[in-house]
Nucleic acid binder design. Structure first.
Lengths: 193, 193
DNA sequence: GTTAAGTGCAAGTACTTACTTGCATAACGC
DNA sequence: GCGTTATGCAAGTAAGTACTTGCACTTAAC
């Protein structure tokens, strides 16, 4: 097996992520992580020192980048299209950290290391949304409190992502359709006419 | 100490609930539960046999009733008022099982005993919402798919309840105001005019 | 008053699990 | 070739934790 130390490290991080998502921090043993990564348990400790340090490194690794410049650059002023782009980006990010978010919510200290990292991208996007809302309110296109609107917008996507986790059989629709629906509801509501 | 066995049982159930909410199933020890309940650990096992049985009994106990007749009876046909009542009832129920929901989401088998019980009331309310939406669509007051609308409505409340858990400092508004805002958004959206 | 049930207490068992350690080995840089 | 580094392997340690058990005590029913 030609595995560099860096490779070993990455395999451990990946295995950690998978197992954390499935069984939580306390439900996951270092033995399992090592097995899943295909390395010896001792190697795990030689790399990371402790289980907690491994978990921290794992979360940090998978939440390290935010990179929203592309999203910001893609916004062109068309209200509906912009909101769809934002919702789509948000949905993607949230899906990718979904299980970490759940894990942090379930932990004693929900805003500890894991909680902070998992919410990093969503929080960054929330700021973008709030700013965007403020602009559109100023332009007379939307009405309400920009912060409340941003929160509502976040919540729409969040609840969808969580709903898919808990009731996957009910959520068969294409992401694009979901985004369309959510943006439509956000802008126009369900009232007829 | 004049404590009946029934009293002991209830104290244990209450302590279990508190600790489960704070530290999760695996993070909570039977020793802790007994201490918090003010009884001996041996008594805990004499009552419930095992930790898992205690957790099941606890969840079952706190999710045992649904009782939505009162809510149903209070609906009088005024669209906005009805939705506010439904949202308010839903919010209350979800708050009360919030931590159990989080716990079940974080567990390996999210739709096991805990998951089923925790979602029991919300699921029942979701059916009411879907039926209600269908009626109002038929009456020409709403437009869309009743199931999607119901899901969206549930999500609004769910994300608020979870948001309050994770970011309590941001959610200072009165529940009544929140409900008003949510129902307004649900019906009319954020678009001006 | 006697009995039975419920409980506290203290000790103990069996298992899991994070973490360590000493040694052999294989690869890689020099 | 030689040393360094990363790893596997096997054994072990220490702590935590679910769960048990035997005994003494209280309480309340009869």
């Amino acid at each position: 097996m030609n595995r560099s130390p860096e490779d070993t490290r990455l395999r451990l991080l990946a295995a950690t992520r998978t197992l954390l998502a499935a069984k939580g921090r306390r439900g996951t043993t270092t033995r399992e992580i090592a097995d899943q990564a295909g390395v010896n348990e001792a190697t795990l400790f030689r790399h990371f020192g402790s289980k907690d340090a491994l978990v921290d490194a794992c979360v940090e690794y998978y939440c390290r980048t935010v990179e929203l410049e592309e999203l910001l650059a893609s916004l062109d002023g068309d209200l509906e299209r912009d909101l769809r782009r934002i919702a789509s980006a948000l949905m993607q990010r949230m899906e990718s950290v979904r299980d970490l978010i759940v894990m942090s919510l379930a932990e004693e200290n929900g805003n500890g290391t894991v909680g902070e990292a998992a919410w990093r991208a969503p929080t960054a996007i929330k700021k973008i949304v709030a700013d965007y809302m403020a602009k559109r309110i100023a332009a007379g296109e939307l009405s309400g409190n920009p912060l409340f609107l941003a929160r509502f917008f976040m919540g729409m996507v969040f609840s969808y992502v969580m709903g898919r986790k808990r009731f996957p059989e009910e959520y068969a629709a294409e992401p694009a359709q979901v985004v369309d629906f959510q943006v439509h509801m956000f802008l126009n509501g369900a009232r007829k006419g």
